[in-house]
Amino acid sequence: MMATSAVEKIDYWQASILKEMELSRARFTHFAFEKHVHLDYHIGVVSHGGQRYHHRGCEYRLTPGNLSTLNPDESHNGQSIADGGYEALVMSLPTSYVQQVGQALNQGELFFNAPIQDDPWLRNYFIRLHQQLTLYQANISPMEAETLLLGFISELFYRHGKLRNLPSNSAKLSGAQLESIKQQFHSGLDQEFELEQLALTVGLSKFQFLRQFKAATGMTPHAYLKRLRLEYAKKALMRGDSAINTAHGLGFFDQSHFNKAFKQAFLITPAHFQKRVTP
């Protein structure tokens, strides 16, 4: 529960994968936004309390469980619903980036169809993404971060935007191209991969590549690579390699990150696994 004393604070971040994107976490008690507009697409949630605002002659209430989706150049204001104030997480998506997504889908300009979305699943996705791009940015690879971002944007506009279905003649990822990508992963388990570079090798946009790879394998490129690393890790541990050398050789940030991923996948720590499978 938020305190009733006046607390007005905004923390800002810049995501390393998209320098033009602004992220913020705010706590307001009495502060009220006057009518204003944004240059970018603004997406937000409240974690405590609630915000009310006027948009195109109607009043909307953003409460926990909902997602705010505001297009560029749409005037609105904002203030707390109750005296206790509210906390909010906000993401500002540059119009140039959203236009790239639209072009990758052979679409025109993309717009949200309403300023409030009742979508708990997507709200939780947004909170996870916001945390990964702010509080835990140092512990996430660029490919994982961009995979999460593109996945969120695609779901957001398909569920709540003015977007047609993908055309039937959209670019495809061939079987040979898919095998080539997989081989790159097998051969470079200790390397960092970027979506843009992988997409370029098969002549697709990042957005197209992400969708096509997931359609073919049922997994995102990052999830597929992570699983490969864990499978190779099991074999290395069975050979008697140390956990720290295994983590380093397979591209994990550190042993702690490796231990967490291994236990999440196999319900056992690397050390315990090694004890069970080696003499």
Score class of each variant (00 low, 15 high):
Lys35Trp: 10
Arg276Thr: 09
Gln107Asp: 11
Phe33Arg: 07
Pro167Leu: 06
Ser5Phe: 15
Ala265Tyr: 00
Leu18Trp: 11
Ala261Gln: 15
Ser75Arg: 12
Leu250Trp: 00
Thr217Ser: 13
Ala261Ser: 15
Glu22Gly: 11
Asn71Glu: 10
Ser16Met: 13
Leu129Met: 08
Thr269Leu: 02
Cys58Leu: 12
Gly84Leu: 00
Leu198Pro: 00
Val90Trp: 07
Lys182Phe: 09
Leu204Val: 08
Thr269Tyr: 02
Pro94Thr: 01
Met238Tyr: 07
Pro221Leu: 02
Ser170Cys: 09
Val98Asp: 09
Met1Tyr: 07
Thr201Gln: 15
Trp121Gln: 13
Ala233Ile: 00
Pro64Val: 01
Glu146Asp: 14
Leu210Glu: 03
Leu225Phe: 03
Leu62Trp: 08
Glu194Ala: 14
Pro72Thr: 06
Phe258Pro: 00
Val101Trp: 04
Ala3His: 12
Thr63Ile: 10
Trp121Asn: 10
Pro142Gly: 11
Asp11Val: 07
His48Gly: 05
Met91Asp: 02
Gln103Trp: 08
Glu144Met: 02
Pro94Gln: 03
Asp241Tyr: 11
Ala247Leu: 01
Arg276Ala: 14
Leu133Met: 13
Leu62Ile: 05
Gln197Ser: 15
Arg276Val: 06
His130Val: 06
Ala216Thr: 05
Val7Gln: 10
Ile153Leu: 15
Leu150Ala: 03
Gly65Pro: 10
Gln191Phe: 01
Phe157Arg: 03
Tyr60Lys: 07
Glu146Thr: 06
Leu122Met: 06
Asn71Phe: 07
Ile10Leu: 11
Ala138Met: 11
Ile244Cys: 04
Gly218Tyr: 04
Ala138Asp: 14
Thr63Phe: 04
Asp73Ser: 09
Lys263His: 03
Gly188Phe: 00
Val98Glu: 05
Lys234Arg: 15
Gly175Trp: 06
Phe185Trp: 01
Thr278Glu: 12
Phe262Arg: 01
Gly188Cys: 07
Asn245Phe: 02
Tyr86Thr: 05
Asn66Lys: 13
Phe262Tyr: 04
Ala3Tyr: 11
Leu166Gln: 11
Arg61Ala: 13
Leu150Pro: 00
His36Thr: 07
Ala15Thr: 05
Gln177Arg: 08
Leu23Tyr: 07
Asn66Met: 06
His42Lys: 13
Ser154Leu: 14
Phe253Gly: 02
Thr134Cys: 08
His248Gln: 14
Ser24Gln: 12
Thr63Leu: 12
Gly249Leu: 04
Leu204Ile: 06
Glu231Lys: 04
Glu194Asn: 06
Ser256Trp: 10
Asp40Ile: 00
Cys58Arg: 11
Arg123Gln: 12
Met219Gly: 10
Thr269Pro: 01
Ala236Val: 04
Pro142Gln: 07
Ile268Phe: 02
Ala15Glu: 06
Lys214Val: 05
Ala265Leu: 00
Phe111Thr: 11
Leu204Ala: 08
Leu210Ile: 01
Arg61Asn: 12
Ser180Phe: 06
Gly85Met: 02
Asn124Lys: 09
Glu59Phe: 09
Ser24Asp: 13
